[in-house]
């Protein structure tokens, strides 16, 4: 569940022209790059950073929804939500594995998240305060993520593309799960409808920010596009998302919290109001309402359970030593 123009990518690379041209020719021929293939240092660095940010987003993304598992209103919703949040954990795991093929360990990647050095999708720094937020997160946040992740299935780096294929297959139920919650609310009491509208009001703009800065302000986008790590620009994906989502909101009978949102016949898509980029950067830089809580929760889960991981490793070492001793007799 992720979609954000990569933050702070640096695709700078220092290989000679001939090497870069040969690499680009492979990319242009749609040949996949596998972990042991020669690749520019900038390509490797950009990928590690992007895959890690993606993985961290899945893991941190478990928190706002996980927060509602014990309070889900029915057993069916509880089971679906637990299964969905579990999937996010699985997706984080697949993605960490893909990053590891480039030579960084899981421990190192997790360490970067916990130290605050690594970024994750800013959307998860907003709070899930009502049950309608669970519907809205599934509908909008997973919807935005799918927009981004489907083209990533064709990413030039093999392990990332393969992980994304698995993720997309599994995520197909996530957005439907969220939209179904919204449908139920919108067909329900006035109180439920108001709850749904309130959640849309709070999540709409942050979900548009998930696609990252405008293309004109997105510094390293061109190189990622050329290397086919990225297949569409931030603005292209954002536009697709808006065009797909507005009719879904109309079907629910909800109002988009954007007075400037209107159909543009000429471009065949919706025009929308200006996104508050100050807010975006504030949240990315750590000042969202939940940034501190999210990091605290992740660190606590890690630190409180260090003894568990140490115990398992110690046991494995002891058992291996015992086996060696027996074999030596």
């Amino acid at each position: 569940m992720y979609s954000q123009g990569l933050i702070g990518a640096d695709g700078t690379t220092h290989e000679d022209e001939e090497f870069l041209a040969a690499f680009q020719a492979r990319i242009d021929a749609e040949l996949k790059i596998e972990p042991n293939d020669p690749m520019p240092a900038g390509y490797r660095k950009t990928l590690v950073r992007q895959i890690a940010q993606h993985a961290h987003s899945e893991i941190v993304g478990m928190l706002p929804e996980g927060n509602w598992i014990t309070r889900a209103p029915t057993l069916r919703r509880k089971a679906a939500l637990l299964a969905k949040v579990q999937d996010e954990g699985g997706h984080g795991l697949y993605l960490y594995s893909a990053a590891e093929t480039l030579g960084v360990s899981r421990e190192e990647l997790v360490g970067q998240l916990l130290s605050g050095k690594a970024k994750y999708s800013s959307i998860f720094n907003y709070p899930a305060i009502t049950w309608a937020d669970i519907g809205t997160i599934g509908w909008l946040v997973d919807g935005a993520a799918i927009m981004n992740q489907i083209p990533l299935c064709r990413c030039s780096f093999g392990p990332y593309a393969r992980a994304m294929i698995r993720v997309c297959k599994e995520e197909s139920f996530h957005q439907r799960q969220g939209y179904e919650i919204m449908l139920t609310l919108c067909k329900g009491s006035d109180e439920q409808k108001a709850m749904a509208q309130d959640a849309l009001d709070r999540w709409w703009w942050p979900s548009l920010m998930m696609f990252g800065p405008h293309d004109a302000d997105s510094t390293h986008s061109d190189q990622s596009m050329a290397w086919k790590i990225k297949r569409f620009t931030n603005d292209e994906l954002r536009q697709k998302f808006i065009d797909a989502t507005v009719p879904q909101a109309e079907f629910l009978g909800l109002t988009m919290p954007d007075p400037d949102l209107k159909w543009n016949e000429e471009k065949g898509g919706y025009d929308h109001g200006e996104i508050d980029w100050d807010e975006f950067w504030r949240v990315v830089k750590g000042d969202g309402i939940c940034n501190r809580d999210r990091m605290k929760a992740r660190r606590k889960a890690h630190d409180d359970n260090t003894w568990v991981r140490e115990a398992a490793l110690a046991y494995a070492e002891k058992t291996a030593a015992r086996e060696t001793a027996v074999a030596a007799e």
Binding site: I59, M62, I69, V85, N305
Partner: peptide
Amino acid sequence: GEWCGHAPTL
């Protein structure tokens, strides 16, 4: 369900 998001390993 309370463990979700807080387990010792992924």
